[in-house]
Simulated assay, not measured.
Amino acid sequence: MPVRKADLLGGQRVDAEMVAAAVTSPNGTVLVTEDGTGIVACCQLERHDDHTCFGMFAVAPPRQRDRPGRQSLAEAERFAREQWHVGEMRMTVITQRADLIAWYERRGYTRTGELTSFPYGDKRFGVPRRPDPAFETLTRKLG
């Protein structure tokens, strides 16, 4: 059975201040995917000189099989390439989420082996339910 983020982290993982900063950042944007019923997916992009960071990705659970996540990721890549003219997308994924990492790999992302520790003590990122969460950076060249 796949490991869900909720299996690894409890508590609040994003707060209103983080969302407000993402929406108003001069070096970033938030992309929202909607259908006739409302928001079905969203993500945050942050522009850097040579790459874009992809994060705060969420897809409405009842809609996950309808492919809005795949479509949102493709739109984020297109936006970064065409609007910001950057050649690489980067993201961090919790290492224990093997199923999610495999999903990104099927979409052309590569594991870098670059690991960063979980920010213990900062409850904005959640409260670990395990003693070993870490993040791995994944990258993809945008052609």
Rank of each mutant, 00 (worst) to 15 (best):
D122C: 01
Q44R: 15
V40L: 09
H48E: 10
I101V: 12
E77Y: 03
R97E: 13
F57D: 02
H85T: 01
P119N: 07
R140K: 15
T37H: 15
A74R: 12
W84F: 04
D7S: 13
D15F: 01
R4Q: 15
I101W: 03
G28W: 06
R70I: 02
P133Q: 11
R90Q: 12
R129Y: 00
D99W: 08
R78G: 00
E17S: 12
V19T: 14
L142H: 10
D66I: 01
C42I: 02
A76L: 05
H48K: 07
G126P: 05
E88T: 08
W103E: 02
G10V: 02
C43S: 13
E105A: 08
F54R: 06
E114N: 11
G69T: 06
R70A: 09
C43Q: 14
D122L: 00
L115Y: 14
Y120H: 12
Y104K: 11
R47Y: 10
P61Q: 07
V30W: 05
A76G: 01
R90V: 02
F54I: 05
A98T: 09
T37A: 15
P131C: 07
V127H: 08
V127W: 07
P119G: 03
K5S: 10
T33I: 05
W84Q: 02
S117M: 02
A76Q: 10
F135N: 02
G113Y: 07
G69L: 04
F118W: 06
P2M: 15
P128S: 08
D49R: 05
E105Q: 12
G10E: 14
E82K: 04
M91C: 05
F135W: 03
V127P: 10
T33G: 15
F118M: 09
P62D: 14
G108P: 00
G113S: 01
D132G: 03
K123I: 00
F57L: 12
P2E: 15
R70N: 04
R70V: 06
P131K: 02
F57P: 06
F118A: 13
V14H: 14
Y104C: 06
P131Y: 04
R63V: 02
P131R: 11
E114T: 11
A102W: 03
Y104S: 10
P26R: 13
E17P: 01
F54M: 08
L73P: 07
V40W: 14
D132I: 00
G143L: 05
R63N: 09
Q96K: 04
T137L: 06
